[in-house]
Nucleic acid binder design. Structure first.
Lengths: 138, 138
DNA sequence: CAAATAAATGCACTTCTGTTGCACACTTGT
DNA sequence: ACAAGTGTGCAACAGAAGTGCATTTATTTG
């Protein structure tokens, strides 16, 4: 519990009760989580609060946003010391067409691509879709 | 003009006036196009018609949908003979943070990724973001 | 050619997600 | 204790995607 408070403080986020709960929730889930998802988990909290909490987390580098192609924004905790802005830290994501979960494959970085002249890449997003470990029956 | 009719017919799409116009519009644009974009270009046509036309095109393999991370669905014409479903035909897309246009880099295929055991990839989406040729001043 | 059938189009409306404005509650520092 | 700043909740809005149904247009069939 204390570790969470510390982690938030380190990133410049004031550790309120709500924020600690949300952090804990994200930490327990292995998959990327949408606002709606969190909303149902925290029925008593307001959607705006959850929304702004996620935005704050994102701003401060606590979570990173994931676009998995479903059109719904998802969030997942950043690794300790990860630097999402840097190109070399960009990992890929896997979206399971069966269970609909999206997970970070933090070990798998996005390969470098040689672009045509004149193109400057600043960011990249790679999502693989298919059947995940759990759903393929191992 | 006749070529468009033929192309549509080949793909099992009845070449109505509307559809030919939309096809032509897409062919003239080099960038991926959103529904809203088309809507403003065809102010007199109904949004539903445009919407369903794009869906039909997509079903029949005339266009492919692009998710460029903006949260807005975009469409671009498929190359003749392209097989968007096949993994080896998956090209990457480039989204310019300056002019906000998304273009297909059909020459650049998505590199193959070695996934952990149990994961089966069926589809992939790679979007690079940065500054495009035009905006980088050559 | 006319009737019957199927496909395409247009209108209205709904849903879902993301987002913002404003007021109130709470925390923090002096 | 007070003032300033931050967090939270309520309400309302915006934009895009999608659906149902009526109407028009095209295609087939007798």
């Amino acid at each position: 519990m204390k570790e969470i408070e510390q982690r938030l403080t380190e990133n410049g986020v004031r550790p309120t009760a709500m924020r600690i709960l949300i952090y804990k929730y994200l930490a327990e889930k292995e998959a990327a989580t949408s606002l709606t998802h969190i909303e149902t988990a925290f029925a008593k909290a307001d959607r705006t609060t959850l929304y702004r909490t996620l935005k704050t987390f994102e701003d401060k580098g606590v979570v990173h946003q994931i676009d998995d192609g479903t059109g719904i924004q998802k969030y997942a905790l950043c690794e300790t010391g990860c630097n999402c802005e840097l190109e070399q830290d960009l990992h890929l994501h896997f979206h399971c067409n069966n269970c609909n979960e999206t997970i970070c494959l933090t070990e798998h970085k996005i390969p470098h691509i040689n672009l045509p002249d004149g193109y400057v890449a600043e960011d990249a997003n790679l999502v693989l879709k298919g059947i995940c470990e759990k759903c393929s029956g191992k």
